[in-house]
């Protein structure tokens, strides 16, 4: 199958860690589940049917969220080629970005508090253009550091002026 967002011929997307999916499901759906449970319980005290309906609707919404997070997680990936790095993400709004190694100004590795808790990091590539949207979220720290070092070395080897 050839979709416009397929990896280039001869390569496969390197996918990101399951930990990102776990992190998003826990941090986004966990509080939502508590909220749904609490409000359904409160409503059930007044009307059992109302509580059941609210709980059911809430669970369906949570299920949809669960699936959406899964779909989005599957959409993340990157591929290293000889001259450039390809980055893709987005299930609904799909994006594919090609960053030539020679254009990289710096490579960031960052992790927010939740990311640190779940042991994942985000690698972000900066070019001289502010509109370049090249980041890979949900990488294992060791993989991310190795990727960053490879990219930095390649960037130096390919370095081009502006």
């Amino acid at each position: 199958m050839t979709t416009p967002f397929a990896p280039p011929a001869g390569t496969e997307w390197v996918r990101v860690s399951r930990r990102m999916r776990t992190m998003r499901r826990t941090t986004l759906l966990g509080p939502a589940l508590i909220l749904v449970g609490a409000s359904a319980g409160l409503l059930a005290a007044a009307s059992a049917v109302g509580g059941a309906v609210l709980g059911l609707v809430g669970l369906v919404a949570l299920g949809a969220g669960w699936a959406a997070i899964g779909r989005n997680w599957r959409s993340w990936g990157y591929a290293e080629r000889a001259d450039d790095l390809l980055v893709t993400h987005g299930a609904l709004f799909k994006k594919l970005t090609v960053v030539p190694y020679g254009r990289m100004q710096l490579v960031d590795v960052e992790a927010g508090p939740f990311e640190r808790l779940f042991g994942v990091v985000t690698v972000k590539l900066h070019t001289a253009a502010a509109t370049t949207d090249a980041r890979v979220a949900g990488l294992l720290p060791a993989d991310a550091l190795a990727l960053r070092d490879r990219l930095t070395a390649l960037g130096e080897a390919h370095a081009a002026g502006l």
């Binding site: 967002f5 253009a129 370049t132």
Partner: peptide, 19 residues
């Protein structure tokens, strides 16, 4: 002078086979 190149498509564009 191009820094990077990107391809994008939202749901509406994808439904129409556009990008």
């Amino acid at each position: 002078r191009t820094q990077s190149v990107g391809l994008s498509a939202g749901p509406w564009q994808r439904a129409l086979g556009l990008a």
